[in-house]
């Protein structure tokens, strides 16, 4: 089992969706990179991603990794956020038959998993359907 440092160093991304915006071409990378994949520049400013988007594709995991056994079946999707940035996360509060491509979602702060009964609790982002 890895130490908690590995979880800790991703906190800005997991908790606040901090991304890197390239000062050269304006491309936004999540997670941040050291080199822009589009233009090769190495300077970035920190930006927070929007918390709204829509489902680009999805699946329902029925045979999960062991750490996610109690959560299965759960939905997972590629989410296109309002600024065009894509991320991958679970789609919570949603039954499999409600899912559809293009479905509007909002990002919420959720528990992702626990490292066993005595280990750390890992938090992060999940999408939830916007039903208004």
């Amino acid at each position: 089992m890895s130490t908690s440092a590995r979880y800790w160093r991703e906190i800005p991304q997991r908790y606040r969706l901090e991304a890197g915006k390239c000062s050269g071409c304006g491309a936004i990378w999540f997670p941040p990179r050291l080199v822009c994949k589009e233009c090769g520049k190495r300077e970035f400013e920190v930006v927070n991603l929007p918390d709204r988007g829509k489902v680009q594709t999805f699946t329902v995991i029925r045979v999960p990794p062991s750490e996610f056994c109690d959560q299965a079946p759960y939905a997972l999707g590629v989410i296109e956020l309002e600024n065009g940035v894509l991320l991958q996360c679970q789609i919570a509060d949603c039954s499999p038959d409600e899912l559809s491509v293009g479905m509007p979602v909002r990002i919420e702060f959720r528990k992702i998993k626990e490292e066993g009964e005595a280990g750390i609790i890992c938090y992060g982002y999940k999408a939830v359907p916007v039903r208004e």
């Binding site: 991703e10 991304q13 997670p31 995991i61 990794p65 959560q71 679970q90 999940k126």
Partner: peptide, 13 residues
Amino acid sequence: QEYEVYNGVTFPG
């Protein structure tokens, strides 16, 4: 590992 698997995805997924 950090941006796909962390969220519970599998290869079939």
